[in-house]
């Protein structure tokens, strides 16, 4: 049924502003915003890992899962758009339990030996463990042997520290436009890979811009010549670039 006259329902469809509830707080939002964006605007913190402002969200780490009243399903806040009358719960015993378990799975998947990591003290995975009150890992560790790719002149890729958030893949593709990085393999065998599975140093397209290094949340991508806890990352270029592009 199509009609040219504006009915109340079609008028509602055109409204761009919605109101919703996040953790008992009434908030208003633009209908194309995500739950995560609206929560952040209202100082409601939802933990994230793969999310990076300025890159297309993936919804893949599942840390930012939230509950929506009336649905048994959980939704990734970074990719779920707000809607009128939505009631979002960002913190509950169930969510806390799942977030903890997911972070634990990341710790057992690779070999995050924090004490000898160049990113010790400045690592988002480590910080997430603190935030979620994780004092030990209940899951058995996998101890899969990983390689370290030191073939690049300036940088190093240590698969032992990688959480497969694909921030590097996205920043290289979406911002730098080089698409050096991608994911090879599947399941537990997934690895970040340069070009068509070349050593990073042999990549023809890498511009050595270092963007991937500085938005990597852990010690997986780092600068060479750094010792334990010495790697300082400067991800601030990304919001700056994003603002500049939007205003262009």
């Amino acid at each position: 049924m199509t009609t040219m006259t504006a009915s109340p329902s079609s008028a509602a469809h055109d409204i761009q502003v919605v109101t919703l509830k996040i953790d008992d707080q009434e908030v208003s939002a633009s209908r194309n915003q995500t739950i995560l964006q609206v929560a952040a605007e209202n100082q409601i913190e939802i933990p994230t890992l793969c999310f990076m402002p300025g890159l297309k969200p993936m919804g893949s780490c599942r840390i930012c899962l939230v509950e929506l009243a009336g649905s048994p399903r959980l939704f990734a806040a970074c990719v779920t758009r707000v809607s009128e009358g939505m009631t979002v719960i960002t913190d509950s015993p169930r969510l806390r339990k799942y977030r903890k378990q997911i972070v634990e799975l990341l710790f057992v998947e690779r070999n995050h030996v924090c004490s000898v990591c160049v990113s010790n003290g400045r690592c988002e995975l480590q910080a997430l463990a603190v935030k979620l009150g994780i004092t030990h890992i209940t899951q058995p560790y996998r101890y899969d042997k990983m390689v370290v790719d030191s073939s690049h002149d300036l940088f190093r890729l240590d698969h032992n520290r990688c959480v497969l958030c694909t921030r590097c893949v996205r920043v290289c593709d979406q911002i730098e436009g080089a698409h050096v990085w991608d994911v090879a393999g599947r399941g537990i065998d997934c690895r970040i890979t340069a070009d068509l599975n070349l050593p990073w140093g042999d990549s023809d397209v890498c511009t050595s811009c270092g963007k991937c290094v500085h938005i990597c949340p852990t010690g997986a991508l780092t600068e060479k010549g750094t010792a334990v806890a010495e790697m300082r990352k400067q991800p601030d270029f990304l919001p700056y670039l994003t603002i500049m592009r939007e205003n262009h």
Partner: peptide
Amino acid sequence: VSLGDCAVTGNVPAMRNF
């Protein structure tokens, strides 16, 4: 009480597990 990373996570001693 598990005191420290080696007791809690295996830490550096567990790097031989590969």
